[in-house]
Design a protein around this nucleic acid. Structure first.
Lengths: 210, 210
DNA sequence: TCGTACACGTCTACACCGTATACGTCTACA
DNA sequence: TGTAGACGTATACGGTGTAGACGTGTACGA
């Protein structure tokens, strides 16, 4: 009822945004809220629940603000996907938590429902809808998490460095692709292309027996 | 050179398998190896590097054992995907680490190369290959991580519970799907269906301008 | 008006964590 | 024989999450 819990969660989110999620300790959070560490336990079961709650606060941003009916199903899907990516860009620490904490909050459920209705409208046979929802959300969260945690980062996966280290015919694929691996990658347009491909995948499923 | 480091990493993996990754502390690991905690630092830079090394040990299992040439590109892709899922089923704690620790180890690179060559063979235009590699690996790792950390688990996302809690027209998608949401889900066949859809996606890209 | 719940916060304490620093010891090789 | 390096130990510091016992205010029914 009281907004005290939300106040605490938002303070925790602020700490994570400013100093990384590792800086969110019960002591640091208590300091920020102006209270003793143990006082936090009145509002949050334990540290794991605190992290859950923090993610929950972010899920609010996933939901569309304008009425849904005005857009086509693939526009709604794209909007949701971009909203998810935006959240993890603004709160990179949250990306991998999205995997462990399923969408059980009301806001999370509403996001899932957006995908369900979009897929139904696209003509996907109903038995296939839950599977495709999982496929799509898995990819979107995975992309966001990869981006946020540096799996795509040039520094980490730098192609130049990669091929330098080991290849003497050992990595024929890398060798064949040569220059294409050195291109700087624009993750926004890549994300767009991926979403377009997935939309086509949805249409193909709908066509198969729709 | 010495196998001491591998011995330590394997001990750490064993602890994680038995008691969860949180149980892998420098002290517990040292105990297991029969040594003082600080001795570990001769073989491992710090705890983060220890986790990296543990993941590295697991990546070995991703590579195919039998010669590659005998299988078609989509069979090779499927084999790799299944190997990845198997690893995270046997070592659930490792799933989300795959996102943060990019494939910079030799074994990781070889796995990426398998995808590259498969896509080239499928007829994907070369500029598109790296993008599709990321799309595929992102989905596969995402699926594995979701499964391993319970995002798909009935307990957490139980549809019955979900719909019970909030819907009064609030979740039209859930309502429309009704019974389909109550089906027990077989993640193995779902994974198969997903991979088949993605293979079709690859073929579509190859067809577009191949 | 009093009594009593109850929400909220504090204080103290414990067991555990990663790791910096300094010190031994054993082996190999010039 | 001396010396360098690999390997392990001992001690210590500052941090962590949280259990348990204890206060304090405010609201409400008798």
């Amino acid at each position: 009822m009281s907004g005290r819990r939300e106040e605490i969660l938002d303070a925790a989110v602020a700490i994570a945004d400013e100093h990384g999620v590792d800086a969110v300790s019960m002591r640091a959070l208590a300091d920020r809220v102006g209270v003793t560490p143990m006082a936090l336990y009145r509002h949050v079961k334990d540290k794991a629940a605190l992290l859950d709650g923090m993610v929950g606060r972010l899920l609010i941003a996933l939901l569309p603000t304008d009425p849904v009916e005005e857009h086509s199903w693939d526009e709604r899907l794209r909007a949701l996907a971009h909203a998810a990516r935006k959240v993890t860009q603004q709160h990179p620490w949250a990306a991998h938590l999205l995997f462990s904490r399923p969408a059980v909050t009301p806001d999370g459920l509403r996001a899932v429902d957006i995908i369900y209705t979009a897929l139904i409208e696209a003509g996907v046979p109903e038995p296939q809808v839950p599977r495709l929802e999982r496929l799509i959300s898995t990819f979107v969260i995975g992309f966001a998490a990869s981006e946020a945690s540096g799996r795509f980062a040039p520094g980490a996966g730098d192609p130049r460095g990669r091929r330098g280290r080991l290849d003497g015919g050992e990595l024929p694929g890398h060798e064949a692709l040569g220059p294409w691996l050195d291109l700087p990658l624009d993750l926004t347009t890549e994300f767009e292309a991926d979403l377009a491909d997935i939309a086509r995948l949805v249409e193909a499923v709908a066509r198969r027996e729709g």
